[in-house]
Write a protein that binds this DNA or RNA. Structure first.
Length: 567
RNA sequence: CGGAAUGUAGCUCAGCUUGGUAGAGCGCACGGUUCGGGACCGUGAGGCCCAGGGUUCGGAAAUCCCUGCAUUCCGACCA
């Protein structure tokens, strides 16, 4: 490609809307432009990279035995009503009507459509297992799009769906996809962790794993055990339930006054209480009822875990007015006693030998409260957010926290969708059975941003060779110099002929402009054709290290051709 | 969905406090000079100052007030 004719609008300054490095660099390097919030155009350079990443994804999917299809982006509401997600998916689902006022959606994901296809076409166990995938534009009406294509409303996703006769089959398909995902990320040159995750709105009963690219700007937190293989999204992560030792005989509960105490912090600083022994009671609105969640004063309720434990659709904290009506007191003195609503107690509270709890009347607390003796509960489980420094559930090692960008998520759906949409087949015995499904997503456009996030320096992007938009960047320092121009042109011609992807900077620009643009764009190798072209010599410069070698033009051509052919 | 900030030239911003009809740097076009890390000189094009309403000097608003919209950031949600 001749740069003089290439639509590559680089920016010298950082656009004010961009906050994180990948967003800034993708704008500056002329890869993307924003149309409206969360919706981007890919310019030629950006689209080249996107296609490189897509190719890697395709190769690994095909290698894993998946078959590529293309499903419609526009889908009838009826399918979503059938699966139950018309209600469950919420406002992220973009809904609209056609001219006949028939309700439609713009697909945020494709479980419904693919399951519909399979229920129509698959009749026999002989047709299974099967894995289908597509690479397609998805639309999710995000509350707050941000960070460029990292969290966009319209984005490119690879989604795959597996169909098996039973759970053992699903395990095999899941493993195959899991491995393929690891290969994709490795080939993209990424440092990542695979973590246990909460399946969220996709659902399914078999659990899920997220593929997290490690990055400071990642929106997810991961807890990782350095001693064993345990790693989980903070939404899901567990730590060992604390052991307190036996307290012996605990005296009966004792009422005491805590005037004006509104928070755990107040109880600590003004009344000298240890938060670890306080029972914090939070009132949640769960779907259409209220639930009291009890955790230790120093712990946080994990709403994702709470939602899962209660099998709820929606969980949100009640406001103070509601709390007053339900408990007889406001924030700061709510206790677990005598509540009419369901109580859910965290494991760490249930194990507590004794503690301090609110009295459900203003300014009153009780000490020597023994869970099980002084109050009961309807449900118990792990509902707190695990923290760095706590002991790993698996091995007791000390958990560490990292930030990550979720670029992939694999789910064992089981029969959630196949049952709702009755996707069934006949087994060897002629019995009708429900298809067991898995689904597997990679945010392809997000992956591009994640790569930039991990591969840049203060001058610009530094592409890993596998996804670089071009293999080599040929830069004649001065295009008006006859010798330099012809040498560069000749290199360009030869390499292009041999299948190497070359960007030739044939612009009549000053060297500084060219070098800065080249560093910004980040092609891995720069072949600089300068004064010594007259002696048949050029410079071979690695973008990553800045290391320069002087080579003969022929040798540079050979090396570049080798890179182009994938060596 | 709550909280905050910002909307002026293609980009980055000044001007707003104190109302008088718009500026800089970069970029762009043309000419000249220059040519190994974003050069220099000259000339020029480019703006319903986000939109709508209001206020006042009867007849001055980028600037003051109100409403809306957009963008961004911070919190609650997800590939």
């Amino acid at each position: 490609m001749r740069q003089s004719r290439y639509f590559l609008p680089t920016l010298r300054e950082i656009p004010s809307e961009a906050e994180i490095p990948s967003h800034q660099l993708m704008l500056r390097a002329g890869m993307i432009r924003q149309l409206v919030s969360g919706i981007y155009t890919y310019l030629p350079l950006g689209y080249r990279v996107l296609r490189k990443v897509e190719r890697i994804v395709r190769e690994e999917m095909d290698r894993a035995g998946a078959q590529e299809v293309l499903l419609p982006a526009v889908q009838p509401a009826s399918l979503w009503q059938e699966s139950g997600r018309w209600e469950d998916y919420g406002k992220e689902l973009l809904r609209f009507q056609d001219r006949h006022e028939r309700p439609l959606v713009l697909g945020p994901t494709h479980e419904e459509v693919i399951t519909d296809l399979v229920r129509q076409e698959v009749r026999s166990y002989r047709q299974l297992p099967m894995i289908l995938y597509q690479i397609q534009t998805k639309f999710r009406d995000e509350v707050r799009p941000r960070f460029g294509v990292m969290r966009a409303r319209e984005f490119v996703m690879k989604d795959a769906y597996s169909f098996d006769v039973d759970w053992e089959g699903l395990d095999r398909s899941y493993q195959a996809m899991y491995k393929a995902y690891e290969s994709v990320l490795q080939r993209c040159g990424l440092r990542f962790r695979v973590v246990q995750a909460d399946p969220g709105a996709i659902g399914g009963e078999g659990g899920s794993h997220e593929f997290m690219v490690l990055s400071e700007v990642g929106e997810d937190s991961l807890l990782v055990c350095p001693r064993c293989s345990y790693a989980a999204n903070i939404e899901k992560a567990r730590s060992k339930t604390p052991e307190y030792g036996s307290a012996g005989d605990v005296p009966p509960m004792e009422r005491f006054l805590t005037p004006g105490a509104r928070s755990i912090e107040d109880l600590k600083t003004r009344f000298g209480l240890n938060p670890e022994t306080i029972l914090k009671v939070l009132i949640y609105r769960v779907d259409d009822r209220y639930v009291a969640a009890v955790v230790r004063g120093d712990h946080e309720v994990n709403e994702v875990k709470l939602k899962r434990l209660l099998n709820a659709r929606r969980v949100e904290l009640a406001d103070e007015e509601t709390v007053r009506a339900l408990t007889g007191t406001g924030f700061g003195s709510v206790g677990p006693f005598g509540l009419t609503m369901e109580r859910v107690v965290d494991d760490a509270v249930a194990a507590l030998p004794e503690g301090v709890a609110g009295g459900n009347e203003p300014d009153v607390h009780y000490r020597h409260v023994v869970p099980g003796r002084d109050f009961q509960w309807e449900k118990q489980g792990d509902i707190r957010t695990a923290r760095a420094g706590e002991p790993c559930v698996e091995c007791g090692g000390t958990l560490e926290m990292y930030r990550g960008i979720e670029v992939g998520h694999v789910f064992k759906l089981g029969t959630k969708y196949s049952e709702a949409l009755s996707a069934v087949f006949l087994d060897e015995q002629g019995r009708q059975r429900t298809v067991v499904m898995g689904c597997y997503g990679i945010g392809v456009s997000r992956l591009v941003a994640a790569i930039v996030e991990q591969h840049h320096d203060d001058k610009g992007i530094v592409w890993p060779a596998s996804v670089a938009p071009f293999h080599v960047h040929v830069i004649p320092v001065n295009i008006r110099d006859e010798q330099q121009r012809t040498t560069a042109e000749e290199l360009y011609r030869q390499l292009t002929e041999r299948g190497t992807e070359v960007l030739l900077d044939d612009r009549d620009e000053r060297p500084g402009v060219k070098f800065n643009d080249a560093d910004l764009i980040g092609v891995p190798v720069q072949v600089i054709v300068g004064k010594r072209a007259s002696e048949g010599l050029v410079e071979w410069k690695w973008r990553r290290t800045g290391e320069v070698e002087v080579l003969s033009t022929e040798e540079a051509a050979e090396r570049a051709a080798a890179i182009g052919s994938g060596e």
